[in-house]
Design a protein around this nucleic acid. Structure first.
Length: 878
DNA sequence: GTGGGACTCT
DNA sequence: CATGAGAGTCCCACT
């Protein structure tokens, strides 16, 4: 006979978990819904997993509990429940009611005690299962009571049986209480014994079993400090144990049949889910009816090359073990194609087949065979490993969905497939492989099926997404700009840039010595040693021990940001040392040590450019980031000496757009003065200074030019008078005057700023020269901050985004031109407004002519584009 | 493992 | 009322 299952849920704790596990969602009424949604998802999982006969959700009741009589600081110092969560408790209760689930609370008791008491009562007659986010509950574990504690997210739970507790801690469940008594619990403000942490507590308990046992054998404990602490805090230890003990005999009155679980009232549940505006939950409700047809994808594998019928068109996917397509191993390649005689469904090939099947290579390299994929850059890069040159790609789901809406950045095929409501499930990688340390590759059939669904989803998405792009007039941007760029980026990443490791090693030695000296000087000035890299510890030293005036605060304490410290620089000599220490520390850890770790066996660094990530259309660079190699300060700039040509007799060559964003601003704002200045080839910052300060060219000094430069940057980013005043260290009225004068002078810019916001609000998105869009729903936000941010975005995105469009097109033109000219020169890197090449020395003269020419002529604006270039033996010299 | 704060770039 | 756009990586502190 199996006993009935009784499920006891810790309502408060699970609601907290749900709240913090999910982003702050709201429905259209502005009501927060994340905790309610998360709680519901948890509940569904739990019900599905356990199928209980009886269930009850326990809630905390009352700010003050009986524990406060013992210790009035119990749970003191705890963060107040956020209002965004508090307002969701009634919703959660309504959802539980709709589910037909009993709830219980008791004045002056916590949910723990209700659960403990019920578990105690029903332990013999039922299989009791307790679910909470609070590990304290594990003290209730017995042979007949199992406790599940949430881990990360909302569905991952850890199961505690007596065996698991023993395995994990080496103690029995009741000893959990003793452990808390000794080590305390900072989240409940239970003090415990100072100096005793988990390790010490467990060691003591393994030997003496209980807190009482420990004190009976106090004399046997020889560790002096420990013995002292135990002696001094004896009362506190016993009190802590008492506080940590869950009450199992609370005066509760729950008739057994009240907890019977009969199942939900679907109509009420639908009302609740509608309020949450969760399509997923509503679909699930409907899903109870057989309306949702889930299709199973079938695939074929081959055991010989002969006889394979190659399609004229197919989608292509390569499943990797990891996310770095330049280095991680291949699991399987899949191809989905039209159903037609002799070739249909999904083909799969394992790694050996990719490497060996000549007909596959021919098919992949055939330009006339149309391929569709998601992240073709990755696929092209992987195939390159096998000496295969992928051709004929006409579609890329990752890029297409990013172009359609940049907030789709980095979405998995799983999510895109779900949004396209394809009639089969594409699982998320995390669900298939697990996450972090628990990640592992499942069986062949599992990942192959997974890869098959991806190829199928890509195939099925083509007509839908292409239509969508044509509708929004973005097909050209997608097909003629991003798609060819993907291929070029793949070549750049695969090529890599050579690095002279000895340069880094020499720099590293020098830096380490200087850091050591700085460190000891800082300790001397501070009068003690501490971790300079810890803003928290540094704040204490500067603002409490030394007594400097805190200028700004962060969420977590004093701000020690560079701009804050710079204001304090004249007050104490330690400041300058700290600033220098942090700069050099960054150089050493990120650039000297970090870059060395990224050097492959070919002596090169192969960054990856993320093409479907930024909201403005820029690229980004990872593993490592080669778009933020130091240049501003000489010490950092030396890092660039390590980047060298890959062949003897070659040189590096760099070409960068001068003031591309201001030129784009001149073009789209049609501001006469700005256009005129660029057409005359004037120095734009000097020109701005002349206008803002009403002086002649000769009267512009370096300070005025510097201020004008800051104003120009500020204009592009939508700065406030406050921001400019901070930046230039001037008064706010002065800053306001600068901005006003600027906008009065450059009327067209003023008009642009107003108009760009208005247009974006009307259309719902900001747009670049090449029809890239960024949706800005926040322009209608009721929050000033959120709205202001969106307004600045509406002004900045067309500028930054158009500049990104331009250099992308230049890269495509440049690639074609290098081929045309039959040069060996290779494009290696892009840094937003700059292209880095390497070439034989004798080609440099040609590059000096054609690179600026191509970059300047790639688009015709109302102002000329200007490109500067340089060459040298390392990146430092260009 | 995650978030904050620091530094780096255009 | 908070306060300049877009990024990535490292370290610390906390879960």
């Amino acid at each position: 006979m199996t006993k009935p299952k009784l499920l006891l849920l810790d309502g408060n704790s699970l609601a907290y978990r749900a709240f913090f596990a999910l982003p702050l969602l709201t429905n259209s009424q502005g009501v927060h819904t994340n905790a309610a949604y998360g709680f519901t998802m948890m509940l569904q999982n739990i019900l599905e997993e356990h199928h209980p006969e009886q269930i009850l959700v326990a809630w905390d009741k009352g700010k003050v509990t009986f524990r406060h009589e013992t210790f009035k600081e119990y749970k003191g110092g705890r963060q107040k429940t956020p209002n965004e969560l508090r307002e969701q408790f009634p919703i959660i209760r309504d959802i539980l009611t709709a589910h037909g689930i009993a709830q219980y609370e008791l004045e002056a008791y916590e949910a723990d005690d209700i659960i403990g008491t019920l578990a105690n009562l029903y332990n013999d007659s039922h299989d009791v299962i307790i679910i909470s986010g609070d590990k304290d509950l594990t003290q209730l574990v017995t042979d007949k009571t199992t406790v599940f504690i949430t881990r990360k997210g909302i569905t991952d739970m850890e199961k505690y049986t007596p065996e698991h507790v023993m395995e994990k801690y080496g103690i029995t469940p009741p000893q959990i209480i003793d452990m808390k008594g000794l080590m305390g619990d900072s989240s409940d403000n239970i003090p415990g014994v100072p100096g005793v942490g988990e390790k010490t507590a467990l060691k003591l308990l393994k030997q003496y079993e209980t807190v009482e046992g420990v004190y009976e054998h106090l004399d046997d404990i020889t560790a002096k400090k420990l013995n002292e602490n135990l002696t001094t805090y004896r009362d506190q230890a016993f009190m802590s144990k008492q506080l940590a003990t869950i009450e199992v005999n609370a005066p509760i009155d729950v008739p057994a049949d009240m907890m019977n679980y009969a199942g939900p009232d679907l109509e009420k549940l639908r009302e609740q889910y509608e309020m949450l505006e969760s399509k997923r939950l509503l679909d699930q409700l409907k899903g109870d009816a057989p309306s949702e047809m889930q299709v199973e994808i079938s695939y074929v594998t081959f055991d010989r090359e002969e006889g394979i019928v190659w399609p004229e068109k197919a989608s292509l996917h390569i499943e990797l073990d990891g996310d770095n397509y330049l280095t991680d191993p291949v699991l399987v390649m899949t191809m989905a194609m039209a159903g037609k005689e002799g070739s249909e469904g999904v083909y799969t090939f394992d790694e050996r087949q990719i490497a060996e099947y000549e007909s596959l290579k021919v098919w992949l390299e055939d330009e006339t065979i149309i391929k569709y994929a998601s992240d073709t850059k990755a696929i092209q890069s992987v195939l390159h490993r096998y000496g295969i040159a992928l051709r004929g790609v006409q579609y890329d789901l990752l890029l297409a969905s990013y172009i359609a809406d940049a907030s789709n950045a980095q979405k998995e095929i799983a999510q895109l497939a779900e949004e396209l409501t394809l009639p089969y499930e594409v699982r998320r990688d995390e669900d298939v492989y697990g996450k972090g340390a628990k990640r592992q590759v499942p069986e062949f059939d599992v990942y192959t099926y997974h890869a098959a669904t991806k190829a199928k989803a890509v195939w099925d998405s083509v007509p839908i997404v292409e239509e969508q792009l044509k509708e929004s007039e973005q097909y050209e941007l997608f097909h003629d700009l991003e798609l060819p760029l993907a291929s070029i980026l793949s070549e750049m990443e695969t090529e890599g840039i050579a690095v002279d490791e000895t340069v880094l090693q020499t720099l590293g030695k020098d830096l380490s010595e200087r850091l050591a000296m700085l460190e000891s000087d800082i300790y001397t000035l501070a009068g003690e040693t501490f971790n300079i890299n810890s803003p928290k510890q540094l704040g204490v030293i500067l603002f409490e021990k030394i007594g400097l005036t805190p200028i700004k605060k962060t969420k977590t304490g004093y701000s020690t940001a560079a701009d804050v410290l710079e204001k304090l620089e004249h007050e104490h000599e330690i400041i300058a040392l700290i600033l220098l220490y942090r700069q050099l520390g960054k150089l050493n850890s990120t650039y000297v040590e970090g870059l060395q770790k990224e050097i492959h066996t070919d002596g090169k660094i192969h960054t990856r450019f993320q093409q479907a990530l930024t909201t403005t259309g820029r690229l980004s660079s990872i593993n490592p980031n080669l778009q933020n190699i130091p240049i501003r300060l000489e010490e950092g700039r030396k890092i660039r000496e390590a980047f060298v040509p890959s062949h003897e007799g070659w040189k590096l060559f760099a070409a960068d757009y001068s003031q591309i964003e201001l030129r784009v601003l001149a073009h789209i704002s049609e501001d006469e003065k700005l256009i005129d200045a660029f057409q005359r080839g004037a120095d734009i910052h000097t020109e701005t200074a002349m206008n803002v300060f009403h002086v002649s060219r000769e009267e512009v000094d370096s300070n005025m030019r510097r201020a004008a430069k800051a104003v120009n940057f500020g204009i592009i980013y939508g700065i406030s008078d406050y921001g400019l005043s901070q930046n230039l260290n001037i008064s706010r009225p002065e800053a306001k005057k600068f901005i006003d004068t600027y906008l009065h002078t450059f009327e067209g810019v003023k008009r642009y700023m107003d108009k760009s916001i208005e247009i974006a609000r009307k259309r719902g998105y900001a747009e670049t020269l090449m029809n890239r869009r960024r949706y800005l729903p926040d322009l209608n936000s009721s929050s000033f901050n959120v709205r202001s941010f969106a307004e600045r975005t509406a002004m900045n995105t067309p500028i930054q985004g158009s500049a990104a469009d331009i250099i992308k097109r230049a890269m495509i033109d440049m690639n074609a031109r290098l081929k045309e000219e039959g040069l060996q020169a290779k494009m290696l890197l892009q840094v937003h407004d700059e292209l880095i090449f390497e070439a034989p020395a004798e080609e440099i003269a040609i590059l000096e002519k054609i690179v600026p020419e191509v970059m300047e002529q790639t688009i015709q604006l109302r102002v000329p584009l200007k490109v500067d270039s340089a060459s040298g033996a390392s990146w430092y010299e260009v």
